[in-house]
């Protein structure tokens, strides 16, 4: 199945991935081949099959709601691109 240029641009927008016009044909070609590969599953009869939620059928563990970690904000923010007064700074979101 061939994806369209518009589909590629739409998916790229959903993925927050800038895609230049020049890059679109390569995505169309390669993603279409990948979708062809995975569409083999369309032909499989899975009626009555429970979708796998965990490879070993284990349930999510719960823990007590206790504070176990100390505050490491400074250490974590040391690798951030732009920090001011302990806050992450990003470009303007709204006018």
């Amino acid at each position: 199945m061939a994806l369209s240029d518009d589909e590629i641009k739409h998916v790229a927008k959903l993925a927050r991935l800038a895609v230049s016009d020049a890059e679109v044909p390569d995505y169309v070609g390669k993603l279409s081949r990948i979708i062809d590969l995975v569409q083999q599953l369309d032909a499989v009869d899975t009626s009555g099959v429970t979708p796998m939620a965990h490879p070993l059928e284990m349930a999510q563990r719960l823990r007590a709601d206790d504070v176990t970690e100390e505050n490491c904000r400074d250490a974590y923010q040391a690798s951030a691109p732009d920090v001011v007064d302990g806050l992450y700074r990003v470009p303007r979101v709204i006018e």
Binding site: V11, A12, L41
Partner: peptide, 24 residues
């Protein structure tokens, strides 16, 4: 891009859910 496409609106059942069934 592939992951975003198969999870996008209208495609989840056809791709991801079907894949988790085949995985079973």
């Amino acid at each position: 891009m592939t992951g975003t496409y198969v999870l996008s609106a209208g495609y989840y059942d056809a791709y991801y859910l079907q894949a988790q069934k085949v995985r079973q």
